[in-house]
Structure formats: structure tokens, C-alpha cells
Design a binder for these strands. Structure first.
Lengths: 339, 339
DNA sequence: AACGCTAATCTAAACGTTTCGATCATGTCA
DNA sequence: TGACATGATCGAAACGTTTAGATTAGCGTT
């Protein structure tokens, strides 16, 4: 900018005024300055600007696994929303690791991001502390955090799983295996609650042996399913509370020599774009990813626009049961329905 | 830092020296400074540091669609590699739009990223210009750009498709439909060349009616397949040159009342993690995503470590044909092989 | 002619670091 | 005792912007 000012024989203040349209500059000087900018190929240095202005027009976004299609879709929507608003997005994948996760949030805050979107593991004690003294608006995505009271976008997980399990029960299933992710993130509590609620509403017992835990990965789903299928009285249906794990479930079913849905019914959380065409066509709980991404972006953009003092807002969206053909009717019901 | 210096009754220079271990500081002062840092909760301002140092320890990464599983995986690997090296990653999804793409690259360069990884649409004229005057190391990912002579990581696309088409020919297929992405990115040229080469090597004619173009999305694959299947002499096999489009292909096959692989064989570029368990189990060309991500990151990290003047390096990795059961033997061959 | 008003422009301080060169004890050696 | 190296600390300039306040010029009023 100094060079531009010299070349145009004006002061840097005038150059700045013209670039930012923050004061009127005479036509003559405008012409000279614009010419100089072109000649020199001047680009404003956003770092210097950020330092002075105290804003980077950059937000931080942390998700556990970008390879999980749910997060992939949401990240995509969020990225586009902020792009439209002139913000850049810094992405971190925390890989469900507690320790790296906090480091990464600190890394983002060091970079002076203007806001933060966090899908986080574990309780919120450290997050709260980090965020409090960073004094930056934060939106929690997909997961609430104990003790962190801020804008949040989540699914009505309990209701969604309740619907799915009730659907299985209506089909005649009585022993329904349930594979949960580990309990240190809130949706896993709520989904489990939905499972229990559905059983209870149908007067079915909650059998501990039918519930298994995994760590969100395909291999965990595989192991959990292997255990469920080797029970002496094995379940007739399995619900996987997360989406990468269901691939493992299907592999285990194949490896053990069974098939879905003939021998065992399967449903899971989170939809796949290909579920309609590959068999078995999985029955899933679809999250409204577009809406989740947009709402999350909007909450943060609203705070960034200056609405700092409004009380925390919590948005709860509804899932949708996508009934396909990976679950079959059982017993008396099977008699009266064509499979 | 000023506050820390005052509280510890030293100069800011000494505080800086201690934090960066750039000069020896006496035990006594070290103690006072560290105490003050804790008391105040001081965090170094990375923006100010960047301004002074001329480096942000941030890189820019642009991909067309993060929802394409290939890019999802590569982005994930790259993010982790840079995270380990203490760099942050700014992500942009260009959505295969020529115009927004250049804006986004400029946005990243404005932010003073230290390096750039680009998977880009279109020819390289503007990219070259942008990058030349930004004077920042750039690595091209997945796609070469006319006129941009810099580090590059690509697949041997021609060979990979040659192998896949040859496999189909060996199964007895003579009329093989080919669905290409649009030609403004280099892999689509090379893949098409692989298709032509395989036909030629087998002495088969290259029939224009068997080749269709789409714009990378599911719906494009659907439309292209519809056209192929309504030819009076329809192909017995279809190869989709990109991975979202193959979903559309499968939908079209279903909607037209055919089934795969009984009526028509299908193969495609890029693997899916679930291909092993859902039927038909797709035969695909798998890219070594882990290696691609790591090599890309390494090339850029090497430049960032100071190796600026080495000549451009081009890495070409090999794809792998994953033979499953979406393609069936035909004619004489079918007689001697059990389907 | 003296005055005030407006519009255009400039000067200089700030943002929070890093770093060069200067200063100042302290101890060593002739 | 004076000269001198050594090690620790500091002062101040610089990075490239923004912006408050000062300055100047032009012009209409009284």
C-alpha cells in the first residue's frame, strides 16, 4: 500500500479510504490510485488488516471424522454458506480423540478465528474454559456438551430411534440387538434412550446382552455384530446407532453365513445416498443434513453479525425413517404380509 | 505480551525471547515471566506473529466436491498430515465452478496461506497468473493443468481404465458403454484414452454412440445411462468414469426394469468402502487414497521446509482394479465359467 | 475582509509481535 | 587497576494495515 501511495503521489490513508470506500476520494486521485494498484499488482494484506481490525473473517470447524457421510454432507453445506458470506473455513478432524481435539481448538483460536463450530467428544469442562477466555461465539453441532451453554443444533435422537425401533417391533421383532457408539457423546445417550423407550412402550424387556458398544468404526460394528450373532438366542434384528459401524455389521452377517433381510433384519442411523439402489436397501434414520448445516451456519453468522448477547438458542431437528427392505416381517405378521 | 512484560517487570523482548527460546533468559526472570503468563492467561497472538514473520503456518486446500468419497478420503489424510506438522488447513469446495474457483483461490491467498493444494477445473491460465504473483508453493492434486508447471500428484488414469475395460473385454463384452465426466479436467482425457486404447488393442471399433458425457453428478449418470440403454443395440456393459455418477447408472438400470449383473454389467472409477457387502458388489478402480494424500502433503511440506528451487516433481500412482461381481461373463466365455 | 462550513487529504498512532543493535553488569586476564 | 570478553536484558524499529484527528483549500455569508 505504501508503494501504491508513493506511485500515486498520495498518502496511504487516501489509498485505504478508496479501497474501503470509507471516505470520498476525488475522481482525479481515484484514477491515479487505481492506476497504481493495477501497475503494481497490489493485493491488500489480510493479515495486517486482521491485526488492526481484530477480525479474520475466518471460522473454525471441527468434526470427528470427515469420512463419516453425515459430517461430510454437513461440512459441505457449512462451507458453502460461509463462502457466500465471505468467510473462510478452517477444518480440523479430531478423529474422536479427546486430547488432540482440545489442541486443535486451541490451534484454531490461536489463529484468531472469529467463530467456532464444534462437534465434540467428551464433557465440556475444557471446552468451556477454552471458549470462555477466547471470547468467541461457538455453535455446538450434533452434540451437546455438559456445562457448555451456547447455541446448539442437534437432532431429536431419542425420537428418531424410538420410531425406528417401534417400526421393528411392529414388524414382529422381539429381540432387537442394539449397537451403540461409546457414551462420551450426547447423541449416544439419547439414541439409547429411544431404544429403551420403544421396548418399554411395547412391554418388552430390556436385555443387557442385546446391547453392545463400539467406537464408531467399521471394525467395531463388525465385532459387536459377531457377539450378537453368537448369542444362544440371537436377535432377529440389529440396529446400529451409527453409520460406519453398519458396514461392519453387514460384513459380520456375511462372514457368519447369514443374509439380510432373510435371516436377520438391519437398520441404522444416518442415510447413504446409494441406499436406494444397492441391496439390501438399508432402512435408515435420515438426518436433514442440508437443514442442519444451514441452521448451524445461520446461528453463527447471526452472532458474527453482532448479535452477541442473545441467550443461547437450541435447535432440535427431526429425523426421518427411510423404510426400505432390509427389515422383514416376522411371525404372525409375516403370514399376512407378502415378503 | 505487553501486560505480561509489565507484570513480570521485564521488557517485551525478554518475554519473546523466553517464549521462543531464542535467547537465554535467567532462571529468576523466567520464573517471573512464566508466573505472569499463567496469571494473565496470556496467549500469543498468531496474527501479529504472522504479520511480522511473513508466515501463517496455514495452507489452503481446494477440492471440487467434498462429498465425493475420493476427495473426502484424500482431504482427511492431508488434514491429518498437516495437523501433525503444526499447520492449519483452510478448506474450500469449488463445486466444479470455474468462476467461484478462482475467487476462492484468491481468498486463500489473501489470507496469506503458506502453500496451496489445488484440485482444479479448467485450464491453468488464470491459476498460473494467480499463483505466480502470490509466490507461494502449489501442489496440483488429481489433475494436471495446462501451463502450470509445478509439483503434481496424479493417478495413471489411462492405464487404470485400460485395465478395467480390458477386463470387461476378456469377459466377452463387445459393446461397452462409457460415461465420461466433462473434458475440462485432465483425468477425463486420460481415462477416455484408456478406454479407446483397450478397444483398439482388442480390435474393437470405437463407436461414438457408446460414449456419453455428464457433469460428475448422480443425475448426469442417470441421464447418460438412460440414453445408453435406449439404444437399439444396447451395450452389455457400462463403465462410469466417476463415482457419484455410477449411483445414477444403477438407478437408471433399476428404473428401466433391468438388473445388474444379469442384464448389464457395471464397473466404475473410485472405490466405495461398502462395495464388499452390498449387492451388486461393484467392480471398481480403487485409487490409493492414503498414498495420494500423504505424497501430496509431503511434496508441499518439503517446499515449505525451504526446498523452493527444486524443479517441479510429478508423481504418478497406480490404480488397482477391484474385481467383484457386478460384471458377468458373456457368450462363449459364459458357457465355460460358472456365474 | 473576516468568518465559518464542508469536503478532501494527510499525519501519526495504534494493532501485537520479532529482532537488531545497544547497554550494562560481572568476571577474567594482563 | 584497567581493558575486555561474556551473558543477560532492554529500547526501538519494523511488519502492513486502519482511523481519529489535524490540516488545508474552496466557497458562500455577513
Amino acid at each position: 500500500m505504501l508503494h501504491v501511495a508513493e506511485a500515486a503521489r498520495v498518502s496511504v490513508a487516501t489509498v485505504s479510504a478508496l479501497i474501503n470506500r470509507t471516505a470520498t476520494v476525488s475522481p482525479e486521485l481515484s484514477r491515479r490510485i487505481e492506476q497504481a494498484i493495477r501497475d503494481i499488482g497490489y493485493k491488500r494484506n489480510a493479515i495486517a488488516r486482521s491485526l488492526k481490525m481484530g477480525t479474520t473473517r475466518t471460522i473454525g470447524l471441527t468434526v470427528p471424522h470427515i469420512t463419516n457421510p453425515f459430517f461430510t454432507d454437513v461440512v459441505s453445506v457449512i462451507q458453502q454458506a460461509f463462502d457466500r458470506a465471505g468467510y473462510a473455513v478452517m477444518l480440523c478432524c479430531t478423529d474422536e480423540h479427546l486430547n488432540t481435539q482440545d489442541d486443535q481448538i486451541r490451534l484454531l483460536l490461536d489463529r484468531m478465528v472469529d467463530g467456532l463450530i464444534v462437534a465434540r467428544v467428551g464433557d465440556g469442562a475444557i471446552l468451556k474454559e477454552i471458549v470462555d477466555d477466547a471470547n468467541v461465539p461457538v455453535v455446538l453441532l450434533d452434540r451437546v456438551c455438559q456445562g457448555v451453554d451456547t447455541d446448539t443444533v442437534v437432532l431429536d435422537n431419542q425420537r428418531a430411534v424410538f420410531d425406528a425401533i417401534t417400526y421393528l417391533i411392529d414388524l414382529g421383532h422381539r429381540r432387537i440387538g442394539y449397537i451403540s457408539g461409546s457414551f462420551d457423546i450426547s447423541p449416544m445417550h439419547d439414541r439409547m434412550a429411544g431404544y429403551r423407550e420403544a421396548l418399554q412402550a411395547a412391554g418388552l424387556p430390556a436385555e443387557p446382552e442385546l446391547v453392545r458398544f463400539g467406537n464408531f468404526h467399521e471394525v467395531d460394528g463388525y465385532n459387536a455384530t459377531m457377539q450378537l450373532l453368537s448369542l444362544h438366542d440371537r436377535p432377529s434384528a440389529i440396529f446400529s446407532a451409527n453409520n460406519p459401524m453398519v458396514i461392519g455389521t453387514m460384513k459380520a452377517i456375511r462372514d457368519i453365513g447369514l443374509s439380510c433381510p432373510e435371516d436377520i433384519s438391519v437398520a441404522c442411523f444416518d442415510d447413504f445416498p446409494w441406499s436406494d439402489v444397492f441391496r439390501p436397501q438399508l432402512t435408515t434414520v435420515a438426518q436433514p443434513v442440508q437443514a442442519i448445516g444451514e441452521q448451524t451456519a445461520n446461528l453463527l453468522l447471526d452472532r458474527l453479525a453482532g448479535n452477541r448477547d442473545a441467550p443461547p438458542r437450541k435447535l432440535t431437528l427431526k429425523g426421518r425413517l427411510m423404510i426400505r427392505n432390509s427389515c422383514r416381517p416376522l411371525g404372525a405378521i409375516a403370514q399376512s404380509v407378502s415378503v
